[in-house]
């Protein structure tokens, strides 16, 4: 009997809070059952720094800077199926609530003109990723195959979604599991 090839999954958090990852861990002991069928590539769980070829990429958080774009593109290149998880990845979420503010004015106020700032300078180290003028959901930057809304989606929702996906069914969250908040 040949061992079934494991499904390779990568996960990451961009402009998010890791809350979706935490919720994922809330599937608790079902993680063991999951690990019988999947293995993890790049993920906060493995500390692998770059994503290799994967079956599924799960991305938490929206896109707020140049590095987010690069990481998301890497995921899109490497993953057959790309999943946006959580309100930030799906809608921009909390970070996108800065979108009505002018970025230049913000940087200027924080680093140059705010009371108490002396000899201020806007950080310009090339190591730092530049912020985009607005925060965007993932689907505005790359093609996204599936979305799991929620802040965060519940462990049950994530479990149901992965169960469907691994079984080859079109994922479907019904009332109760589907939530935007």
């Amino acid at each position: 009997m040949t061992e079934r090839k494991k499904v390779r999954i990568a996960t990451t958090s961009l402009a998010g809070c890791f809350g979706c990852h935490t919720s994922f861990l809330d599937i608790d002991e079902r993680l063991f059952a999951l690990l019988d069928r999947v293995e993890f590539d790049r993920s906060p769980l493995t500390d692998i720094k770059h994503c290799g070829p994967c079956d599924i990429g799960i991305v938490e958080g929206g896109i707020c800077n140049a590095e987010n774009v690069e990481v998301l593109r890497e995921f899109r290149r490497q993953c057959r199926i790309l999943v946006a998880i959580g309100a930030c990845a799906v809608t921009g979420g909390l970070p996108a609530q800065r979108n009505h503010l002018d970025l230049g004015a913000c940087l200027s106020e924080v680093y140059l003109t705010e009371l108490g700032v002396v000899n201020g300078q806007i950080p310009n180290d090339p190591e730092l990723p530049l912020p985009l003028d607005k925060v965007h959901p993932l689907h505005e930057v790359v093609k996204v195959d599936y979305f799991i809304p929620g802040c965060p989606p519940s462990a049950e929702a994530i479990w149901k979604f992965l169960g469907d996906l691994l079984a080859g069914r079109t994922p479907h969250l019904g009332h109760g599991l589907m939530q935007y908040d």
């Binding site: 140049a66 002018d102 970025l103 230049g104 940087l107 200027s108 806007i122 950080p123 310009n124 530049l130 912020p131 985009l132 003028d133």
Partner: peptide, 8 residues
């Protein structure tokens, strides 16, 4: 990124 380039 233009605005951030201008500011930095």
């Amino acid at each position: 990124l233009a605005e951030a380039r201008r500011m930095t």
